[in-house]
Design a protein around this nucleic acid. Structure first.
Lengths: 244, 244
DNA sequence: ACAAAAGTGTTTTTTATACACCCATGC
DNA sequence: GCATGGGTGTATAAAAAACACTTTTGT
């Protein structure tokens, strides 16, 4: 039973694929100024006992995005997130199972990029299954080509932050301007912009609604709480606006 | 023989995939100010006789990009091009073969985006196989979800032009500044920028080498011929520079 | 001479950058 | 009072946008 061989054998042999979805799930710990990635430990061969991206093989009748959602929901409970397709990695021999497997099956990985709110994220511990956040600058050794996928995801996060409002998907409903600033400088680095200029630019865009409410966190002047106004943002969404 | 059913039948059933590569091959006819896409006519069911993107199923041992290259080389002969992965479309039932097929195989399409030089492109007519350029604003009815893929590709072209030098991949070795301008305004629309401002911005970036040679095309003052200097461009490649 | 295409320059407006400084709170 | 974080303003530099004008060719 070798599914990839066609009856008419002078045709080139088509590859048979299993399609996996791997999620680059990122989160931002603004208290410690760290960008974190969610890793799980592999429970089976190959790469047993090594850390890797949370992933799954796609089931019958399941869309790619549904598979990405499923694996996300299995590992983590969040009330808000951003999810989009990242890239498809599909060279032969990226998965050692291909060589060993007599069925001659290729493994293809469609990666998804997810950004979740760190504060509200609760990891779901499933028995022996280890799962943890890792600072993206202190990654352990990783299975497959997952390090490459993570790099790709981190790059996507940076560019997305610059020209799209994904930050507001993971900020709480109400937030201060320095909450946003901390988020941005954690991802983009301290040098990305002066705080007051960042503030002014953001306010000039007119999609932040000042609730009038103040919040005080420790010493210092209390900060205004803002809310993202998606209606006011709508007309800007196709413009090439820059947040930095 | 149903490959997707595992011996241990209480496991969820994994989908088996055939992976196709579909190319959005774009080209710019600067004489007629049109953005063109390469379409082929389907020679078999489903959608027999309808236009679609040039595509192929991935063969054993072949990388995704190699498949994209192969289909490109089969349809067209160009001396220069730009190629990158676009998006992976993979919902169930996007391909009618899925329903009819007793093997319960899913068809997944990894689309690639290609930009080729129109002047030098020679279409390869393979017997009865019809193949032609279509203005992107006058598409015929298309098979599968290919219209959606094309829209995605057109969008990619627009954003790529704005912040990366792909235009120089498809311009001839020597070109005039208005050659570039025409290319940009064909893709981005007439309103994207004033000609003289576009010129000045481009020249200030210092990666266009003036060859000193002039070219005269019909009446009017002869234009300088420039060459793209990839060495001078290299330090800029990670900067967020804008060409418009 | 004149139209057509190429190329230069100038003015105005807008945006970015780098700061200095004021404000409200906890201790 | 003063350290701390929040918020405002200003002066300068740079870039974008609009547009007038010159230069060099073909006819």
């Amino acid at each position: 039973m070798i599914p990839s061989i066609e009856p008419n054998s002078n045709k080139p042999i088509l590859a048979d694929f299993k399609v996996g979805v791997d999620n680059v799930i990122l989160s931002i710990d603004t208290h410690q100024n760290r960008l974190l990635i969610l890793l799980v430990m592999r429970q089976e061969e190959p790469y047993l006992g090594q850390w890797c991206l949370p992933g799954t093989l796609v089931r019958n009748g399941e869309t790619l995005e549904a598979a990405a959602d499923r694996i996300l929901a299995e590992k983590i409970q969040v009330d808000n997130l951003y999810l989009e397709q990242l890239y498809t990695f599909g060279g032969p021999n990226r998965d050692p199972r291909e060589a060993a497997d007599s069925y001659n099956v290729r493994y293809l990985s469609v990666s998804y990029f997810a950004l979740v709110r760190y504060q509200s994220a609760e990891l779901i511990a499933t028995g022996i299954g280890q799962i943890d956040w890792y600072p993206i600058n202190e990654l352990p050794e990783l299975a497959f080509d997952h390090r490459q996928i993570i790099e790709y995801g981190q790059q996507r996060l940076k560019s997305k932050l610059e020209y799209s409002p994904i930050a507001f998907d993971i900020l709480p409903e109400l937030f201060t301007l320095s909450d946003i600033y901390q988020l941005y400088s954690t991802v983009l680095g301290e040098t990305f912009s002066d705080y007051s200029n960042f503030r002014n630019r953001l306010i000039k865009l007119k999609f932040l609604e000042d609730t009038g409410v103040k919040t005080s966190r420790g010493s210092g002047r209390p900060a205004c709480l803002y809310r993202f106004d998606s209606v006011a943002f709508a007309p800007l969404k196709d413009k090439p606006l820059l947040f930095v």
